[in-house]
Amino acid sequence: MDGKQGHSYVVALAGNPNTGKSTVFNGLTGLRQHTGNWPGKTVVQARGHFKYKGQDFVLVDLPGTYSLLANSPEEQVARNFICFEHPAATVIVVDATCLERNLNLVLQVTEITNHVIVCLNLMDEARRHRVFIDVPTLEQELGVPVIPTTARSKQGLAELKEAIHLVSSGKLTPQPVRLRYNPMVEEKIAEILPRLETLPPVYNKRWIALRLIDGDSSILEEMEVKI
């Protein structure tokens, strides 16, 4: 199983800025990384450990980003980690009060990796604003586990740990619903895919093809370093 570092599973923590990512990080690891209500607060990539059911996990707090299309250094850091470091699971922290904007990031991550868990955070706030989210349907639509949480009062974190455990150990492999692009894009992907056959099997070739036809040169540079 890849995504292991020694005996620990590596778990990435992604999400939009200011969704309580650091609070989830602290809640899971028991660390006290500084939290604050402003976007862009996490400038240093934090790592923490936790143990669940006798298994060690290393949690990596990625910088908060709205997308992974790599327009900024933070986005590149987050994208490269998810794509090239092969975390055993990627947890995406999502702000339940503005789901639509957050889903844009989720859909981009599920294009890269199957091992995704959505942490639907700030449920208390959503409830207060009378936003009701149909979690089972959301799970179905995305094809990945969705765990509602209120990280600051530690609600749902036990369930989140269980989901991380299941996905990391391979007991559960999410099947994210893939995006369908317009015929022109799909055609181009089909054209490039055979030429990527020589890549190691852990890479998501469809996604790399997509980045290439998008003219994203940073992905080439990164692949040169990694492969």
Partner: peptide, 14 residues
Amino acid sequence: KAETITNKVVKTPI
């Protein structure tokens, strides 16, 4: 896609 999913699962808009 994000919009479609949101419309399906979110009951009351903010």
